[in-house]
Design a protein around this nucleic acid. Structure first.
Lengths: 237, 237
DNA sequence: TAGATTGTTAATCGATTAACAATC
DNA sequence: TAGATTGTTAATCGATTAACAATC
């Protein structure tokens, strides 16, 4: 009975939105990453191509057990995470695949578009610039910068590499919120400083070193060698 | 006094090694990653070039507070992690920089050499193959495979791209323990299966999808878009 | 010595897992 | 109905933080 009341509340649009806002505000990195993994799995393995826009009948379902097994997490964890973002399942049936996808997309704001610049036109910078998959999550790379004369003017991921000298004015003029740093360790901090000074709100750092930014700027390190160290250590035991 | 005894024990080679083994066996992913970050920071910011082989006088020191501040962790955490791997500091002085580096290198077996193949000669595969930084941690990429005729025969990171058809025999003949997968999502599982069948002990997966492997095989996903989702979500609040 | 730093215990916090009634 | 699955509470576990004596 209490449960039934709750579902009624949750299907009422404005209150449900408020619920989502609260949940979003509270989401820590770990739960966020789990939601992301649920989304990847469910959208790839279970969802019909365009189910997010045109829900099908009969509805497809996925159980917490399926997700848990595929992603090597606890089924209870999945149900808890889903409950926390307002997803309600059906006993003996599971969760509506399209609703799962839609809810996570909305919560994580995949449909908000953000533009980014890549700083460093090396192999990794090129890989990121050329990778189309980020668009799914709302990120579009719009420019690539480098300070190597041999790279400036070359085409990377369909974009002409610009000199670092133009970085600040480009970010300012186009109000770019994200800078992706793929420069070598020795230059990462200096380049991050320039991007921050020009006004970015977030730094996504792929250089193999730590960079420091003011508290107002979001920072995420993508420590690739760190993953390697973990793998190597386990391999060597 | 108790402390003094402990230090004497720890400097006795065989017992110290046993201590390390125990510590290593217990290390979970999180602590391992922290140790790795400590190493990166201390070796980059504090260590003289070759201090691991030829310790300098006067000895350089680093405090848990310095490390904590730079890496945004708790100083107590640093001291605990260091204590757990047998590092002993000096009151009011800190930890011997070279000893920190040497101990972590030994514990994480950076000097053990492991060979790896890259499967997928796209931008990301090329970036990994060309990146020299992995050598620091013991990984050497020795071959790159692809099934695209336009890529086979091309040179990536100094290596000639081989056809996927040769993957199994190459891994078997050279006893390659690690396969790095940078193929598109749709092919990742099939390629992982082939690498596993050929005998690799570990899969380092950069494809934007989950792959499944038998329990005997180590698996590490490097979920790059996952980092993006976290960043984007925080940016959008 | 005085004061900064370590090493360690205890307290807190949060995340994970177990258990099970409610549900379809 | 019977049985699989959800939703939720309680218990466990581990990680983080606080506190402080010992140390240099």
């Amino acid at each position: 009975m209490a449960n039934r009341d709750r579902r009624l509340v949750l299907t009422s649009a404005p209150i449900r939105l408020a619920g989502r806002r609260r949940a979003a505000a509270r989401l820590q990195t770990r739960p966020l990453e789990r939601l992301m993994r649920y989304y990847q799995y469910v959208s790839e393995q279970h969802a019909p191509v365009d189910c997010e826009n045109t829900p099908r009948r009969p509805t497809l379902h996925v159980t917490s057990g399926q997700i848990a097994k595929a992603l090597d997490v606890d089924p209870t964890q999945v149900r808890k995470d889903f409950g926390a973002i307002g997803l309600v399942g059906l006993g003996r049936v599971g969760y509506d695949v399209c609703e799962v996808c839609r809810t996570i997309r909305a919560l994580l704001r995949f449909d908000n578009r953000y533009e980014a610049v890549v700083i460093g036109a090396g192999h990794l910078g090129g890989a990121l610039a050329a990778y189309g998959g980020f668009a799914t999550y709302g990120l579009r790379i719009v420019a690539v910068f480098d300070n190597d004369k041999r790279k400036i003017g070359a085409t990377v991921g369909g974009m002409v590499v610009k000199p670092i000298g133009l970085l600040g004015s480009y970010i300012g003029r186009h109000q770019i919120p994200v800078a992706i740093i793929t420069a070598p360790a020795g230059e990462a901090q200096r380049l991050a400083d320039r991007a921050v000074a020009a006004g970015v709100n977030a730094i996504w750092n792929f250089s193999p070193t730590q960079v420091a930014v003011p508290p107002r700027v979001l920072l995420r390190h993508e420590h690739i060698s760190l993953g390697l160290a973990v793998l190597a250590h386990r391999l060597k035991r």
